Amino acid sequence: MVRIVGFKQREKEDGTSFFILELQGGIEMTLSKETGQFYATAKKAYVTSTFDEQTCKALVGSEMPGSIQKKEVEPYNYVIQETGEELVLQHRWVFVPESDNTARQEKLVDQLMADNYIFSRNGVSDLAHQAI
């Protein structure tokens, strides 16, 4: 599940405005490479919307089934606002609806089951049975 935690107004190239929703996943514990200590964090992603400001305000706090996942993209520059440090990133965090996650998981299970000869029966693989 992800939660809508905010929204922001943006402008299109033609000058018209629209709103994006800020989504946040559940809490995760991450180990700091610098200190060796765990810290709490949550992944965030932004999705465009067709909603007006009033609707966006009303949606804050709502939950949606899905997750925020890392997606590889073409390299781009990113500046950390607090320090001014510029980084080159090759990923973005994107929202993936639960139905997409479920379909991917089912496809993976189907692929594994199609290759069921790799599984053993009583400690002897099917490949060994075929050789006999």
Rank of each mutant, 00 (worst) to 15 (best):
1 M>K: 14
1 M>D: 15
2 V>I: 15
3 R>Q: 08
3 R>A: 01
3 R>P: 06
4 I>D: 06
5 V>S: 05
5 V>F: 09
6 G>L: 01
7 F>P: 15
8 K>M: 05
8 K>L: 06
9 Q>R: 15
9 Q>A: 10
10 R>H: 04
11 E>Y: 04
11 E>A: 02
12 K>Q: 04
13 E>P: 09
14 D>K: 09
14 D>M: 13
17 S>R: 14
18 F>V: 11
21 L>P: 14
21 L>F: 05
22 E>D: 12
24 Q>T: 14
24 Q>V: 11
25 G>T: 14
25 G>F: 08
26 G>I: 12
27 I>D: 07
27 I>E: 11
27 I>Y: 02
28 E>Q: 15
32 S>C: 09
32 S>I: 13
35 T>N: 02
37 Q>Y: 10
37 Q>M: 07
37 Q>P: 05
38 F>S: 01
39 Y>C: 07
39 Y>S: 02
40 A>H: 02
40 A>V: 09
43 K>Y: 12
44 K>F: 10
46 Y>M: 04
47 V>E: 05
47 V>D: 02
47 V>W: 07
47 V>P: 03
48 T>K: 12
48 T>S: 02
50 T>H: 12
52 D>N: 13
52 D>E: 10
53 E>D: 04
53 E>H: 05
53 E>F: 06
54 Q>M: 06
54 Q>G: 05
55 T>I: 08
58 A>H: 08
60 V>S: 07
61 G>W: 05
61 G>C: 02
62 S>I: 14
62 S>Y: 09
64 M>V: 08
65 P>L: 03
65 P>E: 06
68 I>H: 01
68 I>S: 01
69 Q>C: 00
70 K>V: 12
70 K>E: 13
71 K>V: 11
71 K>H: 13
73 V>E: 01
74 E>N: 13
74 E>R: 12
74 E>W: 04
75 P>G: 04
75 P>F: 02
76 Y>K: 11
76 Y>P: 11
77 N>H: 11
77 N>I: 14
78 Y>H: 02
81 Q>W: 06
82 E>C: 00
83 T>N: 02
83 T>C: 00
86 E>N: 04
87 L>W: 09
87 L>M: 05
90 Q>V: 15
91 H>V: 11
93 W>Y: 15
93 W>S: 03
94 V>L: 02
96 V>R: 08
97 P>A: 00
97 P>G: 00
98 E>W: 12
98 E>Y: 10
98 E>C: 01
100 D>V: 14
101 N>W: 04
101 N>D: 05
102 T>K: 13
102 T>S: 00
103 A>L: 13
104 R>W: 07
105 Q>R: 10
106 E>H: 08
106 E>K: 12
106 E>W: 09
107 K>T: 14
107 K>Q: 05
108 L>D: 01
108 L>G: 00
108 L>A: 00
109 V>W: 04
110 D>T: 15
112 L>Y: 11
113 M>K: 08
113 M>V: 09
114 A>F: 07
114 A>W: 03
117 Y>P: 08
117 Y>H: 08
118 I>C: 04
118 I>W: 10
120 S>M: 10
121 R>Q: 04
122 N>E: 11
123 G>P: 03
124 V>M: 09
124 V>A: 05
124 V>D: 06
125 S>R: 13
126 D>W: 14
127 L>D: 01
127 L>H: 06
127 L>V: 09
129 H>I: 08
130 Q>V: 12
132 I>A: 00
132 I>K: 13
